[in-house]
Each structure stands twice: as C-alpha cells, then as structure tokens.
C-alpha cells in the first residue's frame, strides 16, 4: 500500500487502478489534477467536435467550462464519464485512463462521480424519495432505516425534504434539478459534474441553484465541473474557467483574468457582445445584391 504519512503527488498519480478504490480526496490538494484531458479528438459523423483539446482540472474548487452552444460541452462530460469514446487522446480521472477501464472498473469510478443532467434525468416512475434512494439501493446493502436517514439528509441539504412524496412529473424545473443534485451526492462523490445547471430557470431558482452549487462544493470538499454558457452567474462562483471554441481551449484562467483578457473573442463571449470576432451575420452574399438578384 501507499505510504500514509503524506505521499508526494507523483506517487499518488502513478498508483495502479486497483489501489485507487478508496477515495483519496479527503484533504483537498489543489496541485494534484483530478481530471486530465490530453489531446482529445472526437467527431460526430463528419462534424469535428474536439480537435486536440487539453484541459487539466485540479482537485477541489469549481471549474467552469464555457463556450458557445454546439461546442460539445455536454459531450465533454460524457467523455469524462466514459459514456463516449474519443477518436484519439486520453481522459484521465484520478490518474486512471477512462477508456482503458473494464466495465466493472468504470462503474466503480462512476460511483465516485455525481452528474447533474440538464433535464434532471429523474426516474419518472419513482417518487422523489425513491429517486434519491436509488443509488443507495443499487450500490449498498444498507438497512431501510439508514437509507431513510441518508435520503432525508440529502433532501434537507437541497431544501426539499417536504417534497419527498411527490412524483417527478409534479416538480418544477428548478425543483427537479435540486432533487437530481440530492441524488448526485447520495453516494458522497469525489466530483460532481453539472451539465448546464442554470438553463431555463427563473432568477430566484437560478440564485438557489448557484448558491447550492457553491455550498455543496465547500461543505463536501468535492471537485465541481460546470459546463455552461451563463457567463455572469457561473463566473461569480468558479475558481477556474476554460473557454472552448472550435474544438480547442481558447483561453483559461481565473474569472478576474478573463475579465481583463486581451483576446477579443474571449471578451465578446464573457461580456455577451452581439458583434465582434463572431459576426452577427451568418456568411452570405452582399445584402443589396441578394435583394436585387431575385428580380
């Protein structure tokens, strides 16, 4: 086994996968990367989505990955979770190459990841309580009393203990996302991935979710990865931001660094300007010529 007195990051990272079963991340070590994406290539059909993507996500803290719609942010989360296979390149989670893991190893790794889907992805035939209990019932043999206590604790954390008997169809979008968050933390994961957590929410719910994400991150000491294009709200709580466009990382840094960036593209994106390096108009013939040409 590994030296417990305080191993150097290098020895930890080079550990064999079967040694990595128990969670390593009780004390947050900001220098050690939790997720490392190296030279990632991925395409859907003939469309290239990632073209040599490199991202390092350190342990602890909130890392935001932002970019325009259609840049494959959700795809990136699925690649990290091992649901998709890249054409080329590596995704290392906690030092393990996700693509090389066997199904059982991958599932063991996923038990330590929580993922919050945009739609919530609650199981529609189960109540709120059963949804949160689902991962516990599937992966543990805990007695019913213990499951009840755990589920109520998780629901309390997202403020929905009173909604435990409701069915997913009765929940509003924001509530569904909160239940999904409670479910994502049911197994006390090391890392939580958020897929567009703020899309389509009213300002109050949006504030609730942002606060929850921040509170979960600080209270549980997990690593959060947020994929989003809600720049202002996410920038306010994140520690690192990676901007991706055209299948590559365009710029990385802390929110403050990106505010004052020299890159025009980044500035356009971060400040939401309608025109700039990304033109307002889709490429077309000259306007006058087009109008007159029809005659």
């Amino acid at each position: 086994m590994v030296d417990t007195r305080g191993p150097a990051p290098e020895t930890l990272r080079s550990r064999r996968p079967d040694d990595a079963k128990e969670p390593l991340i009780n004390s947050v070590d900001h220098n050690r990367p939790l997720v490392e994406i190296r030279d990632l290539h991925f395409s859907r059909g003939s469309r290239k989505i990632f073209d040599g993507l490199n991202i390092v996500i350190p342990q602890g803290g909130i890392t935001a990955i932002m970019g325009p719609s259609g840049t494959g942010k959700t795809t990136l989360l699925k690649l990290i979770g091992g649901q998709l296979r890249p054409d080329r390149g590596q995704v290392l989670v906690d030092g393990q190459d996700v693509q090389r893991l066997s199904r059982a190893e991958l599932y063991r790794l996923r038990m330590r990841m929580g993922m919050l889907f945009q739609s919530g992805a609650l199981l529609t035939d189960l109540s709120v309580f059963e949804n949160v209990a689902f991962p516990l019932r599937e992966h543990t043999r805990l007695p019913e009393r213990m499951i009840r206590t755990l589920v109520l604790m998780k629901l309390e954390a997202v403020g929905l203990r009173g909604a435990r008997d409701m069915m997913p169809a009765e929940l509003s979008g924001g509530m569904a996302r909160r239940v999904a968050l409670a479910r994502a933390i049911a197994l006390d994961p090391v890392m939580i991935m958020y897929d567009e957590p703020l899309t389509g929410l009213d300002p109050i719910t949006l504030g609730v979710i942002v606060t929850l994400v921040k509170r979960m991150n600080d209270a549980l000491g997990v690593t959060s990865i947020i994929v989003s294009h809600d720049v202002a709200e996410i920038a306010a709580i994140s520690d690192h931001i990676h901007l991706i466009s055209g299948g590559k990382v365009v710029e990385s840094g802390t929110p403050a660094e990106l505010e004052t960036t020299a890159s025009e593209w980044s500035r356009q994106f971060m400040q939401g300007l309608p025109d700039g390096p990304v033109p307002f108009h889709y490429p077309a013939d000259a306007y006058e010529q087009d109008l007159l040409g029809g005659a």
Binding site: G81, Q83, R108, M115, F117, P135, E138, H139
Partner: peptide, 17 residues
C-alpha cells in the same frame, strides 16, 4: 422516453447498467 429524458444516461452515470 427514458432515453429522450436522459434517464438511461443518468443510470449509466450512477454506475447502474
């Protein structure tokens, strides 16, 4: 519909086949 609402994907991510 379970597929369309990402329920199957969600199960996968919860390490449930």
């Amino acid at each position: 519909l379970m597929k369309a609402t990402e329920q199957l994907s969600g199960m996968e991510m919860m390490a449930v086949n």
